[in-house]
């Protein structure tokens, strides 16, 4: 990589940082409990809109893994989710009714909070419908992973998005607030992912899964990206560039081995496809606030009024992380 390119990436990183700094004014604190963050706490950063039904399970799940504090941005929810979170002792909450799209889908807001509060902490940036799975997550808390990453001088941890879906129509089984969404969305595609290298940022670009298969069979280039780097030992100089798909400085994107070996990695189980998806899709279509002109929701709407069935004969039923490891979707690397 030439010095010129390096310099341009540096400028780009500064640009995103300045942008995050400008966008900080859009955030109003509802409950700022960041003073309670202890040194060494693992932090979760998340932005959401009308996800009240998912929030209890989301908090429970990550509390069980050992997350110390949640820093959440509410984007004009009107379903009571904001009030619910404001009452949680380990949540700091900000709210905004500014444009999600113009904050680059929440990235600017979270970049600002990461910079203010994330420095020196392991920070996990996830949506309320994303559940982190990592090697040994059934026997070792998240702290075991971050301690090991620290000991191995690794600063960022990859967790590809794995779309989970139910068998049958999406609206076939109603999701109850506080229950495990994986009881409904328990199926996934195990081996239909295409990977390319993004040479500019050094990250991998992964597409595929049920969304490519069902929503984008004719135009696979438009299918959503699945590569994610959600867990980072944050430094105030870092910045997410596009969602959590890639970061700057670009060394943080090198979460894969290039010489034949495997680095440790996890998965974000994406439980978007519940009975709530239809309502979301209808709302987002009218708001037009989502990525790529809400392409995904339009593709979904294009399938007709019928709620689609993402399940196919070769879908795999989720058991545990070891199954995902054997299938080659994630890896233990040299963590044993």
């Amino acid at each position: 990589m030439s010095v010129w390119q390096q310099y341009r990436l540096r400028l780009e990183r500064k640009r995103w940082r300045v942008r995050a700094w400008r966008k900080r004014r859009e955030l109003t604190a509802v409950e700022d409990r960041t003073a309670r963050i202890a040194p060494g706490d693992i932090l979760v950063f998340s932005t959401f809109r009308n996800e009240d039904v998912r929030l209890p399970w989301f908090l429970d799940y990550y509390r069980r893994l050992g997350v110390g504090h949640f820093l959440m941005v509410d984007n004009a929810s009107d379903d009571g989710g904001r009030e619910f979170l404001a009452g949680q002792p380990d949540v700091s909450l900000w709210t905004t009714d500014a444009s999600y799209k113009r904050s680059r889908f929440g990235v600017d807001w979270l970049n600002w909070l990461l910079r203010r509060h994330g420095h020196g902490h392991w920070c996990l940036t996830v949506d309320p419908d994303e559940l982190l799975i990592y090697p040994f997550c059934d026997t070792r808390p998240l702290r075991a992973l971050t301690d090991w990453l620290d000991a191995s001088s690794i600063k960022s941890f990859s967790a590809m998005l794995l779309d989970m879906y139910p068998k049958g129509r999406l609206d076939g089984q109603p999701y109850r607030r506080g229950s495990d969404p994986l009881e409904i969305a328990q199926w996934f595609d195990s081996g239909n992912y295409a990977i390319e290298r993004n040479h500019r940022f050094g990250n991998l670009w992964i597409q595929g899964g049920p969304r490519a298969r069902v929503f984008f069979p004719e135009t696979p280039a438009l299918a959503p990206a699945l590569n994610k780097i959600p867990l980072v030992k944050w430094d105030r100089r870092y910045t997410y560039v596009s969602s959590t798909h890639m970061l700057l400085p670009r060394g943080l994107n090198l979460v894969y081995d290039e010489w034949g070996g495997e680095k440790a990695s996890g998965l974000l189980l994406h439980t978007k496809f519940l009975d709530t998806f239809g309502g979301k899709a209808a709302e987002e279509l009218s708001r037009g606030q989502h990525y790529g002109a809400s392409r995904e929701y339009r593709a979904y709407a294009g399938l007709g009024a019928d709620s689609p069935d993402l399940w196919c004969k070769w879908s795999e039923k989720y058991i545990n992380w070891r199954q995902l490891e054997i299938l080659g979707l994630m890896s233990k690397g040299n963590w044993a």
């Binding site: 990977i195 894969y256 081995d257 070996g261 495997e262 990695s265 080659g328 890896s331 690397g333 040299n334």
Partner: peptide, 13 residues
């Protein structure tokens, strides 16, 4: 696993 990996597997890491 870390140095040689699983032959023929292409994935996120």
């Amino acid at each position: 696993r870390r140095t040689r990996g699983r032959p023929g597997l292409y994935m996120q890491s």
